[in-house]
């Protein structure tokens, strides 16, 4: 029981961080970023290269992943989404663009980093063992706490910083935000960069536990959509709730349904369908709050 809860929390924290990035971009630009999982993979590979290959400190690698992904996100907004959003009148255009970007990034990642599963040396050794009721390697505990710390930092930043306030204003009423002097182009770019950075940070955190490979971008994106749908699109609290719920479901599923084979996600998808037919707007369904 304790074991299942702890695993769920650890996983939920990573997931929540992924969902936050996706929901931020959605709230700001009304774009579902299909390439979010690929950004996660990129973050993993940057960390792998700097920490695993170049043997520099993990903290430096994580920092580099954050900066790289913020840059990639900023460029994506500036040269892809901004141009398409300005010219197109139909929403499908940005969806196609996002899907195309996902395939493009997949190809780039495959080209640069290859198709092999990559892992890195453990960041800390040892296993925490509480009477065999709760067993958890110290590196998982550390990564879990780092993710929770990042979630808290992001929430506080959105709530209390001037930039965070401007991003929330932009998501709630674009025109009114402009009339207060917010430069829509600049802040859309900042928001996109921030969202991509969050995906990259999780990629960098999780590469130390599960490793990374070029094929997991798509599945990560799908998980991110599920979390955002569970919580309600475009809502901070919803993304966090969705992340922890999915993490918990996965953890419970893996221990309870284990004996029936690999059906956890089948069950999760089925319950999500039922849930959404009852509450299509998700748990906290309202615009950005």
């Amino acid at each position: 029981m304790e074991q299942v809860l702890a695993n769920g929390l650890y996983l939920g924290a990573q997931y929540a961080l992924i969902a936050l990035g996706l929901t931020l971009i959605f709230a700001l630009m009304n774009v579902l970023n299909f390439a979010h999982g690929q950004l996660y993979v990129l973050g993993g590979f940057v960390t792998y290269t700097i920490y695993g290959q170049l043997e520099m400190p993990f903290v430096a690698a994580l920092f580099a992943a954050a900066v790289t992904l913020a840059l990639v996100g900023g460029l994506m907004e500036r040269f892809l989404f901004r141009t398409v959003l300005k010219r197109s009148v139909r929403e499908e255009s940005t969806m196609l663009l996002a899907a195309g970007t996902a395939f493009f990034l997949d190809a780039i990642i495959l080209l640069i980093f290859g198709e092999k599963q990559r892992g890195v040396p453990k960041i800390v050794d040892g296993v925490f063992n509480w009477d065999f009721r709760l067993i958890m390697p110290y590196d998982r505990i550390l990564i879990g706490f780092l993710a929770i710390f990042a979630i808290a930092a992001f929430v506080l930043y959105m709530q209390y910083s001037k930039t965070g306030r401007a991003l929330r204003a932009l998501a709630q009423d674009r025109v009114a935000a402009q009339l207060m002097g917010v430069n829509v182009d600049r802040y859309s770019m900042i928001g996109f960069a921030l969202g991509a950075m969050l995906a990259g940070v999780v990629g960098g955190l999780l590469v130390t536990i599960t490793g990374v490979n070029s094929g997991i971008g798509g599945p990560i994106s799908i998980k991110a959509f599920m979390m955002v749908m569970i919580g309600g699109a475009g809502v901070i609290s919803g993304a966090i709730a969705g992340g922890f719920i999915l993490g918990m479901l996965e953890s419970v599923g893996l221990s309870v349904l284990h004996s029936y084979g690999d059906i956890t996600y089948l069950m999760i998808f089925a319950s999500l369908m039922v849930f959404l037919s009852i509450r299509p707007q998700g748990l906290m369904g309202k615009p950005w709050g």
Partner: peptide, 8 residues
């Protein structure tokens, strides 16, 4: 139509 930021 005022346009407050409703959730702020």
């Amino acid at each position: 139509g005022r346009r407050v930021f409703p959730f702020m």
